[in-house]
Write a protein that binds this DNA or RNA. Sequence first.
RNA 1: GGCGCGGUAGCCAAGUGGUAAGGCCGCGGUCUGCAAAACCGCUAUACGUCGGUUCGAUUCCGACCCGCGCCUCCA
Length: 465
Amino acid sequence: MKIYNTLSRKIEEIKTLENGVVKIYTCGPTVYNYVHIGNLRTFIFEDFLEKTFKFLGYKVIRVMNITDVGHLTSDADEGEDKIEIGAQREGKNAWDIASFYTNAFIENMKELNCDIPKILPKATDHIKEMIDLIKKLEEKGYTYKTSDGIYYDTSKFKDYHKLMGESHIKGIKEGARIEFNKEKKNPTDFALWKFSPKDKKRQMEWDSPWGVGFPGWHIECSAMSMKYLGETLDIHCGGIDHIQVHHTNEIAQSEGATGKPFVNYWAHAEFLVLSQNEKMSKSTGNFITLKSLKDRGFSPLHYRYFCSQAHYRKQLEFSFEALESAKNGYNHLKNSIAELMEGANQNDIADCDKKSNYYIDFVEAISNDLNIPRTLAVVWEVIRDKKLKNIEKLSLIKKFDEVLSLDLLKKDEIIIPGDILELAKKRDEFKKTKDFKKADGIREILKQKGYIIEDTLKGPRIKKL
RNA sequence: GGCGCGGUAGCCAAGUGGUAAGGCCGCGGUCUGCAAAACCGCUAUACGUCGGUUCGAUUCCGACCCGCGCCUCCA
């Protein structure tokens, strides 16, 4: 298994710490609002990664955090964080907001056929671990206090910029904009613990050795990843935007505290970008959710298929036109497979032939920096192959779907209401008496009611529009 | 201003130092009472521009143009 490592800027063969086991930490959502389809692209990438390891025989231990506290809206803001703003917006308390959007997130993941990591720690459940970690950093001299919190002195950590590469350092210094916090010693210093504002009671705040307050924006990932995966882990994933700040700070915190390498491989997913208009941003409220896709007639798996068509390290341009073509492609694929399954018993689909060139191509593709688009081409090639038997094709596709998770062999069972069945029956009778005008009339009525009728060798088949 | 990424047929998008996957769209055919679905076939002389290295570059190097991202919370 090879993957691009942001740390080395090279595609590397993965060597896990423990043979046959891979420990993965994936940055999860901040639950103050719905996740958007850009977030979802990253989570789908991580799901492909996890399933690829499983496909290749690894045991995967994966952690995904739920950030339910602490992320400030910006450096300039005093004390306000997104969860509390969300609470104000919706007239609920902060805890309810976090819980509501956590559930919504999990629901989205399920709909997209993404496995929910078994270890899904919430930041608010790990305040103690964070405090302990900050204490360790304090002991080692990495911290200093300002009027509003405990900060990390990034000048004390040797390789602070290692994730970004040497060339970034210059840019950060020169490109640094307005410095919001004058008490910070270096522009890149960041808060480990923030004090609650003196005049205001926060909904979420905790006691600490430094005073009542709440954790900084980065400490939770260091604390929770090391708690569940150990001081060094194999792979850490996230969106590409996290490289410069969040992940860089995680390294500084974790390695500063332990003196050991924190992560061996960093894997980052590129952005989903909108072809026109502004960018999608959760904090500005300008974003598309899975629900809005569904409202426009797309299924979650249409979106998963859409994402599967592009490599995770390349920006993917989102447009409804492009999604429409993915939808057509996906439906076509499912229909083709449904035809292959006609007459075949699902139980007869045995293990696939691992010596098949298609199987070899598939493994080659997923193992080579997760080339999912290539695997889709393999699936199409299998379907179009003139020599393979249907059952052989299905066994390959079934195996491939362990990674793709597109429900390729799943029959869409839909419940047809009685009145629709009644109409279909009538149409069939008209057809038999060759009264095609009336038969077509009924077909038109059914269409208006949202159902399509297709005549097959085995009789009519009703589908939802 | 700094850093980074990309520009492949009408659209989305893989990939490669020796002339380029796949999907969508379009067209024709088989099937059908007609459709639909599926299948078969076809299609566009596709690799931003200009140089360089090379026997040979879309693939490597340089410059330029264009688009995008990050640099402030953000997948």
